[in-house]
Simulated assay, not measured.
Amino acid sequence: MEPHYQFSDAAFEKQFKHGLLHPSYFTHEAHLRLAWIHITKYGLENAIENITSQLEAFTKLNNEETKYNKTVTIAAIRAVFHFILKSKSDNFRDFIDEFPRLLFEFRDLLGYHYAFNIFDSEEARTTYLEPDLQPFD
């Protein structure tokens, strides 16, 4: 079990927001969970604003600024939103069980939207780049 599950959604959100979450707990799945929490609680646009600013602060606090990628972060939030619209789940664990592709095929999912590698693009790290293949719904 992922270590971020030791926290309730509210506690996980608070730990992350205040920079108290141990960096090793912030896995890909934890990133998706944070997106799910913020989207369901604050809506898509506020989720994007909250998570990007908090993640920038989190990576800076932990001297991991080079790991932050603005395009990947926003694309992940938009991907989670896309699947939330199709979901019947009312909690993250059920949601991720319903859509495991977000965990196991994440790069492939983003490949439907981007013709270039946003994971290694220096420009994508600092500026949100809109999809050049298919926009997010």
Rank of each mutant, 00 (worst) to 15 (best):
P3V: 02
P3Y: 04
P3R: 09
Q6N: 05
S8H: 04
A10D: 11
F12I: 11
F12T: 03
K14S: 14
K14D: 14
Q15K: 15
H18L: 15
H18R: 12
G19I: 02
G19K: 08
G19N: 09
H22E: 14
Y25E: 10
Y25K: 04
Y25I: 06
F26C: 07
T27I: 05
H28V: 07
H28D: 11
E29N: 12
W36R: 02
H38I: 00
H38W: 09
H38R: 09
T40G: 03
T40K: 13
N46R: 12
E49D: 12
E49R: 13
I51V: 12
S53F: 06
Q54G: 02
Q54F: 10
L55K: 14
E56W: 03
A57K: 15
F58Q: 03
T59N: 12
T59Y: 15
N62F: 04
E64K: 10
E65I: 12
N69S: 10
A75E: 05
A76K: 03
I77S: 00
V80E: 05
V80R: 04
H82Y: 11
H82K: 11
F83C: 00
F83M: 05
I84F: 06
S87C: 09
S89H: 08
S89K: 07
D90Q: 14
N91G: 06
F92M: 05
D94L: 12
P100C: 04
E105D: 11
R107H: 07
D108W: 00
L109T: 01
H113S: 07
F116N: 13
N117I: 03
I118V: 14
I118M: 06
F119Y: 15
R125Y: 01
T126S: 13
T127Y: 08
T127L: 08
T127V: 13
E130R: 13
D132Y: 06
L133H: 09
Q134Y: 13
F136E: 09
F136S: 07
